[in-house]
Write a protein that binds this DNA or RNA. Sequence first.
DNA 1: GAATCATAAATTGTATACAGTAACATATTC
DNA 2: GAATATGTTACTGTATACAATTTATGATTC
Lengths: 232, 232
Amino acid sequence: MAKAQSNVDRIHDRLRHMAADFEFKPDERINESTLATQLDASRTPIREALNRLVAEGYLTFQSGRGFFCRSLSPKRILDLYEARAAIECEAVRRSIERASDADIMAVVEHLDETEPAYDKIDDPVELLAMDEDFHVRLAKLSGNDELVRMLENLNGRIRYVRLINLKNLRSDRPVTIGEDANLSVHRTILSALSDRDVSRAIRATRNHIERRREEATEAVRIAYSQLYVPAD
Amino acid sequence: MAKAQSNVDRIHDRLRHMAADFEFKPDERINESTLATQLDASRTPIREALNRLVAEGYLTFQSGRGFFCRSLSPKRILDLYEARAAIECEAVRRSIERASDADIMAVVEHLDETEPAYDKIDDPVELLAMDEDFHVRLAKLSGNDELVRMLENLNGRIRYVRLINLKNLRSDRPVTIGEDANLSVHRTILSALSDRDVSRAIRATRNHIERRREEATEAVRIAYSQLYVPAD
DNA sequence: GAATCATAAATTGTATACAGTAACATATTC
DNA sequence: GAATATGTTACTGTATACAATTTATGATTC
């Protein structure tokens, strides 16, 4: 996604992260002037970026009242995970139809290369980025740009709660997320893909996402408590 | 979708239609000043709306060069239809889990009411609107707002080629779109839903959409010829 | 005549000003 | 003291101006 970034793109990126990480409080009205001075720009490009974020589902907009951060609810997280399952399963289905063996092998090799790192990496942010990267690569095998696009949008919006979830797991047990639970599932999906076994591949994908969903719904509660604790 | 419309919302709506109907030529650069005078507004709100349309996938944006109409290709239509299948099948799956009998019956009754009109209505625009309306109602049974949101976006972007397709069918045979091909499938989906028969419901949905897809891909070719014929 | 460069025109990118409106605080009435 | 009215503040919505950049035009060279 690295491209010739205009200023609006930069602001858009920055604001998207702020929205995803809930640097705005849920349902809070977003003050454009404050943002403008914070990001060292005028209100015009800020508003352009905010409008994009509305279309992307990060924010809402009310005529005459301005932009608002969308609230975070267990229901919405559930919705997003279901949408993700829909997109990824369709991607898998189409990958089996269309992806070449070579393309599939490339993803397998990428997994081989990155898998060892899972155990070493401590930073949840990096860990999550790797996981998202895998899923996007998987989706790209479908050759369907729209599915990829939608998945990237969903990833961005789910990221925050996944992060909360990862950080929490981490405090319980030392390094449990990378291995069996997650990675073997990734391999399962890929091997089913290689075998062109539609039902097995889809079942694996759906199970994988649904399991994550349950964790995420739990994470929302935790997220809420974190959001409203004043950082003193 | 009727809400308190601000000026930007109005412009956004208007521009979305213009983009969907390819009043801009594919890959053509969009002149902001011209639009501003056309829509009787300044460039500021126009640009805000254009930015939303970029996020919605209708337009592209290049730093320093401005906004462009996305090109229409058989490949992209295929992608959009696949995405639609993904979304609608997931919606059906969840509807079976969660929708009440009463809610399903409400959609059946709505179909009962509107079905007779299919034969009478001549206007392809209206016909298409009715079809989209049915599919959105179906999706809403899932209770998943994100799926509905995504479906509405896809509908908007597919609309033009579907319209071309409808107009073409119409010139061949008199009134063939409403009946067996389409409506009975709608009923099939609903009856499978009522029976809580997942595999039958999903199969019906997927078949329905895939059939439409084939027509649409063909329609792209026709659309192209229409787009580039100068209206003299 | 094609290619290259210089100049002019058009267009985008952003700051800013100001009008209109909503939110807030204060005063007034019962 | 609660509720309503009123004035003030703060913020949004949009037009406009201007700088920066790109595109178009024309001149010049080979």
